[in-house]
């Protein structure tokens, strides 16, 4: 942990660079969403824009967490404590979506195999 004044002095530059990177990342996010030739996937918003946007956001978030929040050289306890939040948060979201995406399909009795109703929730 960069606790001694000398080490902190050294990291000032790093903080500035990261700050700059965050600015660049933000501008980049806006550009891919608004400038036509940077619009990947189909025209307008689609899943590729979403993936790219979230990718940039995740990168930025990781930078903040690693450098500003000192997670790059933190005690192992902190990894456990915060990691648990991340893990269970992810588990919750994933399982909710799994449940959402796994509906009962009711194929009907007398429609000759044609679905007569699909219960999606």
């Amino acid at each position: 942990m960069a606790d001694s004044p000398e080490e902190i002095k050294k990291s000032i530059r790093l903080y500035l660079i990261i700050g700059g990177a965050l600015f660049v990342g933000t501008v980049l996010t806006v550009m891919v969403a608004t400038i036509p030739w940077m619009d990947i996937g189909g025209h307008g918003f689609d899943v590729w824009d979403m993936i790219l946007g979230l990718l940039i956001a995740t990168t930025k978030a990781t930078l903040v967490a690693l450098i500003f929040m000192h997670l790059n050289h933190e005690k192992v306890w902190v990894y456990w404590l915060f990691g648990m939040g991340l893990f269970f948060g992810a588990a919750m979201v994933a399982l909710i979506f799994l449940a959402k995406g796994d509906p009962i399909h009711y194929d009907g009795f007398s429609t000759g195999g044609q679905p007569s109703a699909v219960i999606s929730e």
Binding site: M1, K75, W77, V78, L81, F82, M84, G85, L86, F88, G89, A90, M92, V93, I96, F97, K100
Partner: peptide, 30 residues
């Protein structure tokens, strides 16, 4: 542990905040 009390506490609190905003963002996607 290498940590003072409030540092443990804030990371615990942030873990719970992850869950709070996790719930809200999953609400958004849902």
């Amino acid at each position: 542990t290498g940590l003072f009390n409030s540092k443990i506490a804030i990371w615990l609190f942030l873990a719970s905040e992850v869950m709070l905003f996790g719930g809200l963002f999953s609400g958004y996607v849902f």
